[in-house]
Nucleic acid binder design. Structure first.
Length: 876
RNA sequence: GCGGCGGUGGCGGAACGGUAGACGCGGGGCCCUCAAAAGGCCUUGUCCGCAAGGGCGUGUGGGUUCGAAUCCCACCCGCCGCACCA
């Protein structure tokens, strides 16, 4: 049989051609009734109209991997995420579900634009080239994609609806314009996205980034903070991702308390999580950006010093300001506010450790019970008053400075007689309700989450569909005028405004409200907007009348299994959840969460480091596929380790998987050939074609091997092979459900090794059964070779076969190996009948030769019996 | 600092509280070959022993248990996320 050689480069295109010609992985949106795989000849891809009704609709399943950003060619990370997703998609299909498994491209974004700036090539062209490369490779990997739903976010027929969603949010008051501090590169004369700022410097030219106040578009994600937090409890996501989202939302319970500046007659509310420490507030601090700082010092002797301090603080980078270790700086404002709980006048300061973005931009400072306030007070000689005692120390009267700042719990002191002696947690609630009754404060909840800034002064993005009219102000572009198409331009370089502003003909427009002159918004949207709803569009991708038909969405959404990198744990996954909730509130969706289950796959490294061009350690998937075939590449990346873990790529490991697939294919081809002669001549295993292999049809597990008495095989080998096959069915099924692809593939290897070991003893029909079962189980990971092997052995299409079911009777054994322990240590193993009583097992164990040796002269204290497993004899 | 995850052979990794190291890589030996490549067979945690067998072994130290890689407590190390969030 030496002419048999595993040739993936011949096998893989052959099966890919079948899937492409028959559109095997397409699913229609028509009410089910038609078979999920409409390969049945003649009917064509359309919905088969004439179907036998009455059969219960098969359940549907939406399996989705995060859509790729098409740049250059796919990398190993892509290979991994789509290998994982495809395994799940295939598994769901063969469990009888109609599976939606689409593909698209997140095509707007900076790399294409930067490339355009450098080379002058229109981003449309470079993007199209990348997309073509991605398509080609996904096909060469044999990923089971429904190509009829393919989309790209940069196509007008897609972003038309991105714009529609923006207008819906605008209409609902969830999109708004506000002046904000943004990152500005003085050299490139442009606003930068946060991602473009590396350590406070412009990613491209290296200049230090400044902060500028500019009007920008925001989406009101903060309105959804509570729901985004609460609904995490109902979805099946990795705990670390949920935790990251919870931290990002950053919910804090506390109180808002008003401090009044009597001189100016202005109230300053502050947010605090520690209203129990109000009596210890000895000064008051405002953020440098606080809009009232200038007027508080205007015309006073403090004006100059304050202005200098504020200017200096504003020019510092976030990184510099954010360093908690550096000394606390700040200057006095020369004013006071009144502490509402005790009427004390306390001095006001401005200091850069207070952030404008959080709370109200001003704080009450309690140096005795807050580390930062303590450091500031020490640096500026401010009074420190302890108001909570530390119950773990015995506080001698007077030695107040000991153990400060103290941030733990304890009884109140130096406060009001009403509260002194109370535990601080109980006092907290009382103080808040007292303030509330006095109109000086109230309980409050604060979030770290900020509204989402979506404006980008960039060309290669979705235009924001609004107009500015001299008369009417901001006017939304009427829906019938969508999409607002991105015009072609010559010069992509940003020059202090969006490159779109140079497209004067495009900018000039007519106001749809008054007919007067208007100009278009020249900023584009953050690309995260594009990807916050693409999973909805897949469901109804061909719809040109609406973004989607809610009835169609109901069939597929929410996504049953979402798969992607953990690097999107916060941004994309939070934004998509926000969009879903907002669109549900607007009546466009009737579910609250887009992704019911999430799986985050780990990174693939090389020599322990992230793959990168600069390191020169990139392994391009195409090189592996060309050399070993896609099945090897896919199976290896799943075999290498648990898919949620980071794994290191090893060229030797790839060889190992290739060797396995080669051996597997060779043995199968040999068995198929040997079987052919025997089967056609009739005989024991004459029912070759009819579902005998793989035990797919219920009950076929007792197929070829079950009849036991094949003339040419020995019965024990026969049974062993049969048992191993059913063991593998059980193991792979369990492992697929828990994403343990590495151990699933290992189980198929074990089954194959058993086939290989017993090739001389077992009958051809038994080998055929075992090998076709192995092919059936391997199909989700290595579809081409599995399809080929199954076809050779069974003459059928493995993807049309239901997932095999293990026969429970064959998972049990009538005799097993009983582990015999003495004092918990393994001493012997003996054969034990499955139906032995505990007493019999004890006897068997005591009789084992090596156990006897260890029992000699000892007293048996106790015997533990675990039927089916072991006996442990405890001696003294 | 806060939060999350992890630490098992030479390596990647397996192990419902019950035989630690499945499967693969790498190593060693052998077969095939004129030779090599490819392929096949055997072997491979460590120490003692000719062997039978025994001792030791899952980051460290304790604990629970007949029995712990697994559960509990304390600690060490590594990775990731957030970080002056009041």
């Amino acid at each position: 049989m030496s002419e048999h050689r595993y040739d993936p480069l011949e096998i893989e295109p052959r099966w890919q051609a079948v899937w492409a010609a028959e559109r095997t992985w397409e699913v229609s949106n028509d009410p089910p009734g038609a078979p999920a795989n409409s390969h049945t000849s003649g009917e064509g891809p359309g919905s088969g109209g004439a179907d036998a009704g009455g059969a219960p609709a098969p359940p549907s399943s939406y399996v989705l991997e995060m859509l790729p950003y098409p740049s250059g060619e796919p990398h190993i990370g892509h290979l991994k995420v789509y290998s994982v997703g495809d395994a799940i998609a295939h598994f769901h299909r063969r469990l009888g579900r109609r599976v939606l498994h689409p593909m698209g491209y997140d095509a707007f974004g900076l790399p294409a634009e930067n490339h355009a700036i450098k080379t002058g090539v229109n981003p449309r062209e470079s993007t199209a080239a990348s997309i073509a490369s991605f398509q080609r490779q996904f096909r060469s990997w044999g990923i089971s994609i429904d190509w009829s739903r393919e989309l790209s976010t940069h196509e007008p027929r897609y972003y038309r609806w991105t714009q529609w969603i923006f207008l819906e949010l605008l209409r609902a008051g969830l999109a708004y314009r506000k002046e904000a501090a943004v990152k500005w590169c003085p050299n490139d004369q442009t606003v930068l996205a946060n991602e473009q700022v590396v350590d406070g410097h412009c990613e491209r030219c290296g200049a230090e980034v400044e902060i500028r106040q500019l009007e920008q578009w925001f989406l009101r994600i903060t309105d959804y903070a509570e729901r985004l937090l609460g609904d995490l409890d109902g979805i099946e996501w990795p705990e670390n991702v949920k935790t990251m989202q919870r931290n990002w939302i950053g919910r804090s319970e506390g109180a808002e308390v008003t401090f009044r500046c009597a001189e100016l007659g202005v109230d300053y509310p502050v947010f605090t999580t520690r209203p129990d420490t109000l009596f210890g507030a000895t000064f008051f601090v405002m953020a440098p950006e606080h809009s009232d700082v200038p007027r508080l010092v205007e015309g006073t002797e403090r004006e100059r010093a304050v202005r200098e301090y504020v200017n200096h603080a504003l020019t510092e980078s976030n990184e510099e300001r954010g360093d908690a270790e550096r000394p606390k700086t700040g200057v006095a404002l020369g004013r006071t506010v009144t502490n509402p709980v005790n009427g004390e006048e306390i001095p006001m300061y401005v200091a850069d450790y207070v952030l404008m973005e959080y709370g109200t931009g001003a704080i009450m400072a309690v140096p005795a019970h807050d580390e930062r306030d303590y450091a500031f007070a020490r640096a500026h000689g401010l009074p420190i008053r302890r108001v909570i005692e530390d119950p773990s120390t015995t506080p001698p009267e007077g030695a107040d400075e000991e153990g400060l700042p103290y941030t733990g719990d304890g009884p109140l002191v130096n406060s009001d007689p009403r509260f002194d002696g109370q535990g601080n947690r109980e006092a907290l609630a009382e103080i808040v309700s007292w303030l509330d009754s006095e109109g000086k404060g109230h309980a409050s909840v604060n979030y770290r989450l900020r509204d989402w800034l979506v404006s980008r002064q960039r060309y290669w993005g979705c235009p924001i569909p609004v107009l500015y009219c001299e008369e009417c102000g901001i006017v939304p572009v009427p829906e019938e005028q969508l999409p607002v198409e991105l015009p072609d331009i010559e010069d992509y370089a940003p020059r202090g405004r969006s490159p779109l502003a140079a497209a004067e003909e495009w900018v000039a427009a007519e106001c749809p409200a008054c007919g007067g002159p208007a100009r278009r918004e020249t900023d584009t949207m953050d690309t995260f907007v594009d990807s916050s709803w693409y999973f909805l569009r897949y469901c109804d991708a061909a719809n040109d009348e609406a973004a989607w038909d809610p009835a169609v969405l109901r069939r597929w959404m929410p996504v049953d299994q979402y798969i992607g990198g953990v690097e999107h744990a916060i941004l994309h996954l939070m934004y998509a959840r926000f969009f879903t909730k907002a669109l549900a509130d607007l009546g466009h969706l009737d579910f609250q969460e887009p992704f019911q289950a999430l799986f985050t796959q780990g990174m693939v490294t090389k020599d322990g480091a992230k793959m990168s061009k600069s390191r020169g350690n990139v392994v391009p998937p195409s090189a592996i596929v060309e050399r070993y075939g896609a099945d090897t590449a896919r199976a290896y990346i799943l075999f290498i380790g648990p898919p949620d873990q980071d794994v290191d790529w090893s060229d030797e490991g790839v060889e190992g998987v290739y060797r396995f697939l080669s051996r597997f294919w060779r043995l199968a081809a040999e068995v198929a050939e040997r079987g052919r002669g025997k089967d056609t001549s009739g005989g024991a295993s004459g029912r070759a074609g009819d579902g005998a292999p793989a035990g797919d049809a219920p009950g076929s597990a007792d197929g070829p091997a079950g009849n036991g008495a094949s003339a040419e095989g020995d019965g024990d080998a026969e049974e062993e092979l049969l048992r191993k096959a059913h063991w593998a069915i059980d193991k792979v099924s369990t492992d697929l459900r828990r994403f343990a692809f590495n151990t699933a593939i290992a189980a198929v290897m074990e089954l194959f090794n058993e086939c290989s070991r017993l090739r001389e003893q077992a009958s051809i029909s038994a080998q055929r059964f075992a090998l076709s079962t192995a092919a059936s189980l391997l199909f989700p990971f290595a579809p081409h070779v599995s399809a080929d092997v199954y076809d050779r052995l069974a003459g059928e299409r493995v993807w049309e076969q239901p997932w095999p079911r293990a026969d429970p009777a064959l998972l049990e054994r009538e005799v097993y190996e009983l582990v015999c322990q003495v004092n918990g240590k393994l001493r012997d193993r003996v054969q034990a009948p499955a139906d032995a009583t505990p007493e019999q097992l004890k006897e068997l164990c005591r009789a084992a030769p090596n156990v006897r040796a260890h029992l000699d002269g000892k007293e048996i204290v106790k015997e533990i019996v675990v039927p089916g497993k072991l006996v442990n004899v405890v001696v003294r």
